[in-house]
Design a protein around this nucleic acid. Structure first.
Ligand SMILES: [Mn+2]
Ligand SMILES: [Mn+2]
Ligand SMILES: [Zn+2]
Ligand SMILES: [Zn+2]
Lengths: 142, 142
DNA sequence: CCTGATTTTGAAAACTCTTTTCAAAATTTC
DNA sequence: GAAATTTTGAAAAGAGTTTTCAAAATCAGG
């Protein structure tokens, strides 16, 4: 019944002499069910429902663990807090953020990716990651 | 001897019933001489050389004023502090950030801009601003 | 299973960057 | 120049995140 992601976490944990705990399992399970871009505080509240004794610091620590093990991806849309989305088995995408309602649309555009590489190469720059955020008004808010 | 930017500030100030002060003039003059992407703390240290009594809070407040009056543009490269660059008389550009040495390269790519509009339109989304950051290794650090 | 070395946890304190508060000082208006 | 209003610097507060620390949990090896 364990997900692929749980195996990734297990692997990362054994390879780094860490220990698997019920808190870490709980945070991962709740995180995997989040289909939005979730903040530490939001995830903490969700996990608390199943694991009421969990501390906020543990959620922060566990999210750092997920980020290191490539299970999560850290995002910052400039609202003062970091957000997380699952990365494992999810392909790269960029984001449009509605400044009215906060909705987040995901998109990919192969040519944008291609031209990023092109302009980087032209400057002798090797891209390791990128962030493209489009801010504006979504169709519901027009 | 006053710059175009000083006129923009003057205009914004009179239009909003604010007052021009020697601190605001000093911060603007030092900011205009910064050709890098400067943090509040860095600007504070630079202004302190000419205006030793100035407070850090005033620099923060003045940068907010510049941002509102379109003189400055706020950037966040994810290192935990905001940075500012002049916007007036400077055309839009995006950034490559070297994760080794911190160098920042500026670039524009008309087709990237065009495809951003295209993918937004396709989703019924109206872009008001965007941020494109490429992280990686610059030519000096390879 | 124990045992014991090692890691993890929750609560609270600390941290960093930024904003706010407040009384004194400066600016502008009349 | 006096009065109304805004701004200032210093210090406190705030927000999100990280660290500290002693107690609890995990996990090898026997
Ligand atoms: Mn996403
Ligand atoms: Mn720039
Ligand atoms: Zn919307
Ligand atoms: Zn470099």
């Amino acid at each position: 019944m364990d997900s692929k992601e749980m195996e990734v976490l297990q692997d990362y944990i054994t390879q780094n002499n860490l220990k698997i705990t019920k808190q870490r399992r709980a945070v991962l399970n709740v995180f995997l069910e989040c289909e939005n871009h979730v903040s530490a505080e939001e995830l903490y509240k969700l996990v608390s429902e199943k694991e009421p004794k969990i501390g906020l610091a543990t959620v922060y620590r566990t999210l750092a663990l997920f980020t290191q093990s490539q299970l999560a991806h850290e995002l910052d849309f400039g609202d003062g807090q970091k957000r997380y989305e699952h990365q494992f088995m999810h392909s790269h995408h960029d984001h449009m953020i509605c400044t009215e309602c906060g909705k987040i649309l995901e998109f990919t555009h192969p040519l944008i990716e291609k031209f990023q590489e092109e302009v980087a190469a032209r400057n002798g720059f090797t891209i390791t990651s990128h962030k493209l955020h489009l801010f504006g008004i979504c169709s519901d808010c027009r």
